[in-house]
Write a protein that binds this DNA or RNA. Structure first.
Lengths: 347, 347
DNA sequence: GTGAAAGCGCTAACAG
DNA sequence: CTGTTAGCGCTTTCAC
């Protein structure tokens, strides 16, 4: 026998510790909850138990604790927001805040909500088995998925109430902005200012939403001018990526008198590239961004935005999530929320 | 008897549905899991069960499901990051990413982690009973607390592994930046440029960290120049708040040739106020920010930052959290992580 | 001082 | 086609 008493297979339970120390499970439980004083366990026993807990590396099973500890009069409901690590958290935190508010409003004696955010790597939602089974959430909002995630979701039926934000998926309740309309309005704003060589700046890896924005932008420009706008492709979503891509475009002497950046990180980078090239915004190059950036007003100059109306979107999400959980809604619906336009100095 | 069959007291369980429809609990369970095909339940029965589920408003108990469903060979560990709604999510998302990475590295057959973010209203952590009992998490990182929260934590012993980020609390493992040193370095940078009338911009509601930054800044300036710097107080943390406060200060003709903004939202607002007043950065007014802003490089001009070294901080947190859970550490420790300085064009 | 037993709500295996 | 049984891991009486 090896000296080390390592239980190599199953996780350590209270019973295993009990057996190891030759006491009962309840004694162990008492010590773990620091109730040994009131139960007047012998100090020596307490110490032996403590030692075993440490040596065996006990970590409690929270599911079992919850089941046992919960007051059978109160109903505990677990809500989640699933988003990718790579996405900006601004909208997510608004969704969370609002979900929490509605949850609080419905909380009372006998009804109790927890709301949390869980994250997955963009494109790898399918690997998060823990998030996707019925034993974790009563309802979730899923957002910031990539095409791979969407494909996975389309082929699955999740075992709880789901509202999808920003994607159209068959068989799910979806709340959507209208990227087509956003792209179209962005084009109209630039063309309306007299831009002749509009450019669209996109990340290489397009979400469904950003792809549609760019597409609609191009279609509108082509329809009104007869030619496609130039497409500048950034390596990623960050300002650095945007700055590099646009710098290359401007450096190559390819024309640009208006820019539509499909995400605001890119717009921020574009600002730097434009200024570095000695051009003025909006005189030389007008810029339109997307409007989900909390700081758009503080860009220099302030950034004109055409974007989703977040307030309305969040309202829709939360309403639908609760309707689904209460089975007041059974059929999936798609809800489209029209864009809001904020004209500022950049265009 | 009222017509409506509302079970007004305890939450609806599978058994209640079973009784209501006069079938067994397993039949109900089968239908809920959509396994009635393979069990070949009578379609009529399925319909009756479905109807009862809807009518009684059944919502599953996830704790019970998890306990039952989990594979006894694998150990499931639940990690949380507790933060306030009001705080910026940038650092939180980095912490989450890193915790997730370390968790993934330790995941294997027989070991499995979930990481999630839960939020509380700043100052009201004590009300979040659900987050604070032993039946939810195996370990948590707590951050973005206000003094009320700190007082509450100091008076409590949380029943799981806890690492506190950015606060000094007795009896907790704390990982801290060094706000005093940050404030001092900021002052040195401004004075080193020859600033004679430095100003510090703070929010009205100070966190422990921001208060110390401001304090150290003032102390250093006083020590080197003999006079206290002016304090400009913004109503909140947003760029709008910062812009308003500084605009008022500049408008009142009170001098300012160097600015230290204790949060980056405020710095962003300050930029606008300074430019609106026709002053140049850094020629007329040099600006120093705090360095936890992901876009500091894209401010116009890029913002010089003196701030916590996030990478190192996150590393410390995660290491300590795992040490605590494994009981490799028992005594609480305070870990101080020295600041990083990034000189950019604004100072 | 300590142990035995019951049961939280759910589901899977096994009997009919 | 459907019901009975057992038990996930934990804590809390109650009994000795």
């Amino acid at each position: 026998m090896a000296a080390m008493a390592r239980s190599d297979k199953r996780p350590v339970t209270v019973h295993m510790i009990a057996k190891h120390v030759s006491v009962s499970a309840s004694a162990v439980s008492t010590v773990l909850a620091d109730r040994h004083e009131e139960r007047r366990l012998a100090p020596a026993t307490v110490e032996r138990i403590r030692k075993a807990v440490r040596d065996l590396g006990y970590v409690p099973n929270v599911a079992a604790r919850r089941l046992r500890a919960h007051d059978p009069e109160v109903h505990h409901i677990e809500l989640g927001i699933l988003t990718s690590f790579e996405a900006p958290l601004f909208l997510v935190s608004r969704v969370l805040r609002q979900v929490q508010r509605m949850a609080d409003a419905r909380t009372g004696p006998g009804r109790n909500f927890s709301v949390s955010i869980a994250m997955f790597h963009a494109g790898r939602l399918r690997e998060m088995a823990g998030l996707l089974n019925a034993s974790r959430f009563n309802g979730v909002v899923i957002t910031n998925t990539l095409p791979d995630d969407d494909a996975f979701l389309a082929a699955t039926t999740l075992p709880y109430a789901v509202v999808v934000l920003g994607r159209r998926l068959p068989n799910y309740c979806c709340v959507l902005d209208t990227p087509g309309e956003i792209g179209r309005r962005a084009a109209e704003i630039l063309l309306g200012r007299g831009c002749r060589r509009p450019v669209v700046l996109t990340p290489a890896l397009l979400t469904q939403s950003t792809a549609e924005r760019a597409e609609a932008f191009c279609t509108t420009v082509r329809a009104k001018t007869g030619t496609d706008p130039a497409r500048v492709v950034a390596a990623g979503f960050t300002p650095t990526n945007g700055a590099e891509a646009l710098r290359a475009h401007l450096g190559a002497g390819r024309g640009c008198d208006g820019l539509y950046a499909v995400t605001d990180g890119l717009a921020l980078g574009a600002y730097q590239a434009i200024k570095d090239a000695g051009r003025k915004i909006p005189k030389d190059i007008a810029v339109v961004g997307v409007g989900d950036h909390e700081h758009a007003d503080f860009f220099d100059p302030p950034l004109t935005c055409v974007g989703p109306s977040n307030e309305t979107i969040v309202e829709q999400i939360v309403t639908q999530l609760f309707d689904l959980m209460n089975r007041r809604r059974v059929k999936p619906v798609e809800t489209f929320v029209p864009p809001s336009v904020v004209m500022r100095a950049s265009a």
